[in-house]
Nucleic acid binder design. Structure first.
Lengths: 159, 159
DNA sequence: GGTGAAAGCACCGAGTT
DNA sequence: AACTCGGTGCTTTCACC
């Protein structure tokens, strides 16, 4: 998990691909005044190094009828059950991320649901897991995302 | 924000593109036994409908030296300041998402940092925002992601 | 590590069923 | 709606710098 060295050109390539994975390498090449072959080689190297894990579509879950987001803090009866509970949590659909955390909760997860009714069903599944003492739900009323591009800019500035 | 109707073919196209945005349409066509032109038309329609918002790279932040994830619950002095505080939060680099929530916290955000020292700096910035009463941090010790593909399968099954 | 050219494909629109 | 087909343009490799 060592820090990998990327130069300014790599940053700019990532920058354009983060915005749109399908940006033609020829476009990137034109903008950076390098050849398309070079873009290709550099992307391949970043893939091989594992910096670029993959690419994915960004979908509008609201339009798909899944506008409900909530965070659920999970309290365990005993921390020794963490691994078991985490496995059970990962079997529940609509739980999009789960974290083992320090602080208030033992496990902390994010769920995406159709509506409150649907969210209730998911939370009940969480509550029913053996080893779960109780849960605490925080419903998201408004989401504001700091896009990846900004995060990457912050990271690049820091390197 | 109405629910949009997608058929089985659309599901399968999304499924392949979610896994790898650059999957050639010809490959998708071969697998689904339709023509590449059809794949093209359907993707375009989903883009026009706003279902597909865009595409992005998945990067290994650990390899970039950003292995630290924490969730920070923010308590406000007064909920009328929510909008102002949210704007200030969005100006802080390395805060990747912020939610206005019901429940324990007023605002809830996720941060990505290099290490504990760096995280401390970010949290201090949050604490210093005018209107913030106090914050509560939960450090992620272990992350387990339910990939998009599984979420989409759950969504498709439900439609 | 970069280039430029060339071969091989993919994309995508037009016209057809 | 989906297909075929063809022009255009993208990707990817390779010999050379």
């Amino acid at each position: 998990m060592a820090k990998f060295k990327l130069d300014e050109t790599d940053h700019q390539i990532l920058d354009m691909l983060i915005e749109n994975t399908r940006t033609p390498f020829t476009d990137i090449a034109k903008k950076l005044l390098i050849s398309a072959g070079t873009v290709h080689v550099r992307v391949k190297k970043m893939e091989e190094a594992g910096i670029i894990i993959g690419s994915s579509l960004t979908l509008d879950y609201k339009k798909l009828g899944y506008a409900f987001i909530a965070y659920v803090g999970v309290f365990l009866k005993n921390t020794s059950q963490t691994k078991f509970v985490l496995e059970r949590i990962n079997e529940i659909p609509f739980v999009t991320v789960a974290h083992v955390t320090t602080g208030k909760f033992n496990v902390f997860c994010k769920i995406r649901a159709k509506n409150t009714q649907h969210a209730k069903d998911i939370i009940f599944l969480l509550d029913d897991i053996e080893g779960v003492y109780r849960t605490e739900t925080m419903i998201s009323l408004e989401e504001s995302i700091n896009d990846k591009k900004r995060l990457m800019h912050s990271i690049f500035k820091d390197m």
